[in-house]
Amino acid sequence: MSNFDIDRVISISLEISKSDNCDIFLYNGDIERGGDLEFIEAVHANKRNSICRLILVTSGGDPDAAYKMARYLQDRYDRFELILGGLCKSAGTLIAIGAHELIFSPYGELGPLDVQVAKEDKLNGYQSGLNISAALQAMESRAIKAYLRLIGDIMRSSSGVVSFQTASKSASDVLSSLYGPIFARIDPEDLGSRSRSMRIAADYGKRLDAVSENMKDGAVGRLAETYPSHGFVIDMAEAEALFVNVRTASSRELELIEALGPSSRWPTKDSRMICLSADQEEDGDETEPEGGDERPQQEDGEDSPRAGEPAGAPSGSVRRAGRRQRSATSEDLRPATSNGTSPDGPQ
């Protein structure tokens, strides 16, 4: 995630959090299984209020993970609000359906309720689930137009000698030779799998909307079926035709988005979840008194256990186990590798 002035970001977030009694989180990156667990753990560790405001920046991902994340926020908070600082596509739109209110910045945009499907025999390659549907519709439209045009051409060129039945048969034979090999390459099983994937996202959307009640009639179906591409821009004006509660970001919210810079606008490769509203002083790590640990020694020279700490437990293990997740610091912004470690060692 890009670097930014963490002190300024935390200062603005705490001001918004205290004035509006809300927790503020930033999630940037792909939505995938594993990332949903990190998301849930961060929310669980930092929940302080009954309202959640999530800044979500993503190109999309796994609808199952998106559903888990949105459903958890619905379960944990009385009200869930989504701030759109930049791109929020595909599975990100699914999370948006679970929000009680959408908050748009000038850069904010949603996308169709589209599922990213892995390309066959391609590593790390994904394509829109809308591709196969769009391709079939285009081929069907072209075939019908070509069929009707061929019939008319044949009958006109023969001056009416050739009957409609004969012209129809001739046109059908021509189209079979042209489009037959193309349609033969379509795998019915693959087509069914992609159709099911698209239906999964729509069904999840209906379940999330049953709680948020923020979608207009038929809007979930429109998001899943009527838009032509994965990257189609659904800005605030378009969103107002789909969602009930949509508003422009406040001046302080815009200031927070500006302070976050690219991290609030463009998705990064490595997903990262940060609580922006946790008080660092409250969450700071406990420190040992200067001069070291002066616990009394047992007669045999071994350290005696602290009160409430099991005999034989490592020093401070109980306190560390109960300590909640700290708030965001500059260390949280170091780029992570695929195995979850930073370039200079495990996080």
Rank of each mutant, 00 (worst) to 15 (best):
E294H: 08
W266L: 14
N46S: 15
S158T: 15
G92P: 03
K18D: 11
D279C: 11
S159M: 00
D153N: 12
H44A: 08
R71Q: 08
A219S: 09
P63T: 07
Y77G: 09
E286H: 10
Y67K: 03
L223D: 08
E41M: 12
F4A: 11
Y27F: 13
L333Y: 10
G261N: 12
M155I: 15
G312V: 13
D344C: 07
G129D: 06
S2V: 09
A167W: 09
S50M: 03
R79P: 04
D279H: 13
P262F: 12
R323W: 15
L54M: 14
L136G: 08
G316V: 00
D209E: 11
G61K: 00
G291D: 04
G340Q: 06
K169M: 07
N21F: 01
L150D: 11
A224M: 10
I51C: 05
S11A: 13
K119G: 00
R142I: 15
D235Q: 02
S195G: 05
L14Y: 00
S338N: 08
E302A: 09
L94D: 02
A259W: 02
L56V: 00
G92K: 04
M155Q: 15
N49F: 08
N124D: 11
V220M: 04
S197F: 13
G60P: 03
T337W: 07
R324T: 07
L191E: 01
T337N: 14
E294T: 06
K119P: 00
R247E: 09
E238K: 10
G125S: 09
S172A: 12
G108S: 02
D30P: 06
D235I: 01
D64E: 08
H230K: 10
T166I: 15
S128F: 03
A118E: 13
S141G: 12
R323A: 14
L333K: 06
S90E: 14
K119R: 02
Y126C: 05
P289F: 07
R8F: 05
T268Y: 06
Y27C: 00
T93L: 08
D344W: 09
K269D: 12
V174Q: 09
G108D: 02
H44P: 00
E140V: 12
F39M: 13
L175T: 05
S229Q: 14
R320E: 12
D209I: 05
N21W: 01
E281W: 12
P346F: 13
D64I: 01
S330E: 15
S172Y: 01
S177D: 07
S263M: 15
G205M: 06
E253G: 01
N28D: 05
R142W: 07
I95V: 15
E258S: 02
F80E: 06
G125A: 10
G340P: 12
